[in-house]
């Protein structure tokens, strides 16, 4: 009489409503593309000033991070992200949102153990694995340089 676990899992997997992949993907493409094109626009705009090229290259992500952080603070980033999905997640805007949002939430636990400690609960893995893999690349690159 008991529910068979295997059959039940299969039943649930079969009936669970799926995410609208086509719609989501289209939204992600448009929004992600728009953010990248906007970044390109910023680059062109900053390029018109007398700033050196390296500074311009750094100012673009800095501006995007600022805008993402501000819209997170204003409470509109999550509304947009609900529609855009990976379109806001994958650009550096998603990184900024992932830094700001946990810090805002945990402000009630204090500036040190709340804001300070929780800032990287979501974005931390990206930095950890990014730095790890780049360090690994650095070692291999160095070995190649030395040996070859």
């Amino acid at each position: 009489m008991d529910i068979n676990e295997k059959e039940y899992k299969k039943y649930c997997a079969g009936r669970a409503k799926k995410s609208p992949v086509f719609k989501d993907t289209f939204a992600a493409f448009i929004c992600g593309g728009a953010i990248c094109a906007f970044a390109e626009g910023l680059k062109a705009l900053y390029g018109m000033t007398s700033l050196p090229e390296d500074t311009v290259k750094m100012l673009v992500p800095v501006t995007l991070v600022f805008l993402a952080a501000l819209s997170t603070g204003l409470g509109v980033f999550d509304d947009f992200a609900k529609f855009a999905g990976a379109g806001t997640l994958v650009p550096i805007t998603g990184f900024a949102n992932a830094v700001v949002s946990p810090a805002m939430d945990d402000k009630s636990e204090g500036l040190i153990m709340g804001v300070g400690a929780k800032m990287f609960t979501i974005a931390g893995p990206v930095i950890v694995y990014g730095v790890l893999s780049s360090a690994l690349y650095g070692v291999i690159y160095w070995l190649c340089e030395v040996l070859l």
């Binding site: 799926k18 995410s19 609208p20 992949v21 989501d24 993907t25 289209f26 939204a27 992600a28 493409f29 448009i30 929004c31 992600g32 593309g33 728009a34 953010i35 990248c36 094109a37 970044a39 390109e40 626009g41 062109a44 999905g85 990976a86 379109g87 997640l89 994958v90 650009p91």
Partner: peptide, 22 residues
């Protein structure tokens, strides 16, 4: 440049969305 930035950037996001959904 804008068009290619849009298309390539959008495509990276679209692939991530497909991975999330499926």
């Amino acid at each position: 440049e804008f068009l290619w930035a849009f298309i390539i950037g959008g495509a990276f996001c679209a692939v991530a969305q497909i991975l999330i959904d499926t």
